[in-house]
């Protein structure tokens, strides 16, 4: 047991955790999780870019059929929700619990708003006969169908993340109201915020790829 002696210099450089919550560790875990989310989407982005390379012309033409207005509005909605998310954390850190609750509620509302707009957009498109395997796409060259397959897959997966994010933020909202997340112990809200911002970042890239190629 020669090693277990206690030189002063070596003391208390680490071994965080059990008595107090390891805030840094929780954030680190969240960041690592965000990396996996990023890589999850990157598989789709890779497919998209390869297909775009194979069917450049078709992708350009197909993108004419997406509704740029819906896309732009949704981008702004999501960016604003990111703002309210960040504001909510600041408010909590400054001890303004109810201001934080207000901001967080608006984030959730904006997230749901995004989903509603997305729903309207999808139904418009499906109504116009644009969906994978539709007779309308069948008349166009091959790349068309791939473009819309990618479109539905990627925006769908992103929408699913928005939905999960809304659920997560709702739990955080309840925690704040119940006093489980406080000014002193706000790391869970911060982690949830990180997740929400990542969803935003993914949309920032989806937007030009599907709405702005014409």
């Amino acid at each position: 047991m020669s090693e277990i002696s206690l030189p002063e210099s070596a003391k208390h450089t680490g071994h965080a955790g059990h008595p107090k919550k390891d805030v840094h560790g929780i954030k680190m875990g969240m960041w690592l999780f965000l990396m996996t989310e990023l890589l999850l989407f990157s598989g789709m982005f890779l497919l998209y870019s390869a297909y775009r390379y194979f069917y450049t012309k078709e992708f350009h033409e197909a993108a004419m059929y997406t509704h740029t207005l819906f896309g732009t509005v949704n981008t702004m909605v999501l960016l604003t929700s990111s703002l309210t998310m960040a504001l909510s954390i600041t408010a909590l850190e400054r001890g303004k619990k109810w201001l934080s609750v207000t901001f967080l509620s608006s984030t959730i509302a904006l997230g749901l708003g995004f989903l509603v707009i997305k729903y309207v957009e999808w139904s418009t498109e499906i109504h116009e006969g644009i969906y994978p395997g539709s007779p309308m796409l069948f008349k166009h060259p091959r790349g068309f169908e791939l473009f819309f397959a990618m479109y539905y897959l990627m925006t769908g997966l992103h929408g699913l993340h928005v939905l999960v994010g809304c659920g997560l933020l709702t739990v955080m909202l309840i925690f704040i109201i119940k006093g489980k997340i406080t000014q002193e112990d706000s790391v869970r809200l911060e982690a949830a915020g990180l997740y929400w911002h990542l969803i935003d970042i993914i949309w920032i890239f989806l937007f030009p790829l599907f709405y702005l190629v014409n």
């Binding site: 030189p7 070596a10 208390h12 071994h15 965080a16 955790g17 390891d22 560790g25 875990g29 999780f33």
Partner: peptide
Amino acid sequence: SILTGINFLTTIHRLRAPGM
């Protein structure tokens, strides 16, 4: 597998004994 990976990385970064 992903969650185990996250857990281990955080453990190694954060919980090493003093001096390690």
